[in-house]
Amino acid sequence: MTDTTPWTIDEIAAYAARYGLTRLEPAHLERMREIADKVALASAAIPRMPRKSDEPAPVFRVPLT
């Protein structure tokens, strides 16, 4: 279901620029590419809950203060 094909440096540069990071040093861009691959793998390893009714923790509570 999840595509864990490694990011290319051009893809990560385009992604960074799209979301506001336009002045990254080449070293940070390369680090981002490495981390993005790790995040994709780690995220793909999170088990998906089998039922649609399995909610996340109730972090929204009322009444609001």
Binding site: S43, I46, P47, R48, M49, D54, P56, A57, V59
Partner: peptide, 8 residues
Amino acid sequence: AAQRRRRE
């Protein structure tokens, strides 16, 4: 997904 799995 992480929050849902966390609850379980």
